[in-house]
Design a binder for these strands. Structure first.
Lengths: 343, 343
DNA sequence: CTCTTAGAGCGAACCGTTTCGCTCTAAAGT
DNA sequence: ACTTTAGAGCGAAACGGTTCGCTCTAAGAG
């Protein structure tokens, strides 16, 4: 049905090799160039990327594996990654593992079977073994948001510890000492880092750590909700809550509302990641915000760089100068609001 | 590097054709079956989907083209589409046209160059001409959320007019007559339908239409914000606002907050699509909610059906019984809250 | 005027599958 | 015992590109 390169050779009298050379930006005689371009227009020819992919052993396709596509963090990340990749002619295949380790491993296999040229992912598992098959195929990987003990992968992170430190220090400066943190479990990289910053800030101000104020759990609305309810319905209440992700922040606000309490009068709060929420909730929220767009563009650019490298190293056949893994660390910012009471 | 079918023939002594037949579920002698399966395990063989795609002229890949991936509607839709497609071994390539008609056309071309087997899209353009090239290639299309005058495409819609009718009727039943609608422009299908339902509800109750209360504009936070400010700062204020999408709802709430007003005391409101907001805002919001998961699964299933059909019609070479376009219409629901005052 | 050389063009092999139509074997039918 | 016949196996030709290494031409060097 669709025209092929062979139709062009027939129309122009040139050979396969020459037409192919033209299509790949090689030099051809001006007269032949005209001939080919005319034929392409006439036949409505378009390169078959599948055939090209077979010959070149690449698909111009990147896999993006993320948990919970249906949240703003994931959506923003994907939107920006897709934008940059497409401009370089790469397609973006998305997968959502919904925070399930087994599904994550399965989807990596799926992406490999689709022969993606690279994978960008927010890892769910704490152990990088499931990525071995990707590494052994020489497919570049870029991690976002989380990383592994072994430093073998490129990654784009934010300084979670520093973000927490700033947030909690702010609370302390406003006179708070009974500060609670609602965070993820210790097996999650970001949760550990955010907790670390919390500890640091307290220690830095000689405030003793009260473990009743550390509420670990899943990164869900439910956890934020339950933790807040249990914190606010005992006699030894915190005066401030540090809520360490989007869903937790949401759950906490719902709980506060349901309890008939209000911030900042009954309790001060700093939330996380929920830029929209910060505008729409009254009074406005203090908020730690991550540079999501920068995270995405940074990851995409690292990936493009790696792809370029592997292309070159396949032509120039020198020793595989396995470059060090790149590690980009970005800064969060602290959005001011009216959700903290000066004590 | 990776094992191919030929490696298996060498190891088993069988022919290419036989191994291929096995891989595609054909019958082989039990002893040969064992032989092949052993070789596959031994060699760590995996089908090269690119080569297969070339031979079969399909990629097992679907393009999903949507505006603004970074909102919850898009995220939820994509998450569920991806889930279903992957279970049928289809990859999901996403594209975000950001509501730009030119970009939309460009991205359709991009998806075609990636040789997707089908396209699911929320159209941005009001004219379906940019999809002609897809149709002429015989690639199935499923529209979500919006449709075109010509009924040539499968589509999954919600009954926007009915949704508006219910929402506005509810306001009227609670004693409101001065009801304003903040909606999209007339060139958008959903905006027209939602406005239609609003008119119907008013007429149905013999309330005369006040065009000052119809605020058309873009589907953005800004429009919601500006419209609300202008509505609430004149003498002839509405007593209720019907906010016809997620962003507009957001903008309106911000505006109300900034004006120092509060709902439902100063003005009653019904929002749209913002399930999360409905929980977190105090008092809780009345809200029109779309069955997003159902929309996505429905679209994915229609697509799978079409793909199956085209597969069959390519084997059985009978006349192309071009089936009628499918049109699925789903119902919205009205979430009750405390944002409407009984007059 | 001859020799060198850059670079355009070409033929053929290759990428890893599928598939058509043929051969061959062995069980079933008479 | 002889003929059908079902169905497993096979060879070879696609699918639509890229690429290696060769030939050939014509411009530039001496």
């Amino acid at each position: 049905m669709a025209a092929t390169i062979r139709d062009i050779t027939k129309m122009t009298g040139l050979s396969l090799a020459t037409v192919s050379k033209y299509l790949n930006g090689g030099n051809v005689l001006p007269e032949n160039r005209t001939l080919i371009e005319h034929a392409i227009k006439e036949l409505n020819y378009e390169v078959n990327e599948v055939a090209r992919g077979l010959a070149k052993n690449r698909t111009k396709t990147i896999g993006v594996l993320i948990h919970n596509l249906d949240n703003i963090f994931a959506g923003t990340i994907i939107a920006h990654i897709e934008d940059i990749l497409r401009q370089h002619d790469y397609g973006t295949i998305v997968c959502d593992c919904r925070g399930d380790i087994d599904l994550e491993e399965q989807e990596i296999k799926f992406l490999l079977s689709k022969r993606v040229d690279g994978i960008i992912t927010i890892p769910t598992s704490g152990n990088s073994k499931y990525l071995d098959s990707v590494v052994s195929r020489g497919i570049p990987i870029v991690l976002i948001d989380r990383t592994f003990e072994d430093k073998r992968f490129d990654c784009v992170l934010v300084d979670n510890s520093e973000a927490s430190f700033q947030a909690v220090t702010t609370l302390i400066q406003k006179g708070h000492e009974k500060i609670s943190i609602v965070c993820g479990n210790d097996n999650e990289y970001t949760a550990r880092e955010r907790l670390l910053g919390y500890y640091k800030a307290l220690e830095n101000n000689n405030i003793k750590i009260d473990l009743d104020f550390v509420k670990r759990g899943s990164l869900t609305v439910e956890h934020g909700y339950e933790a807040t309810k249990s914190l606010m319905t005992v006699t030894n209440r915190p005066t401030a809550l540090y809520l360490t992700n989007y869903e937790i922040t949401l759950g906490a606000i719902i709980a506060i509302n349901e309890l008939g309490l209000s911030f900042p009068d009954d309790v001060s709060i700093i939330g996380f990641d929920n830029l929209m929420l910060s505008k729409v909730v009254k009074p406005t929220l203090w908020m730690v915000v991550q540079p999501m767009e920068e995270i995405a563009t940074s990851a995409a650019h690292i990936m493009l760089k790696r792809l370029q490298d592997t292309n070159q190293s396949s032509t120039t056949n020198d020793t595989v100068t396995e470059r060090e893994a790149v590690r980009v660390s970005l800064n969060t910012s602290l959005l001011t609001g009216n959700s903290i009471k000066q004590l």
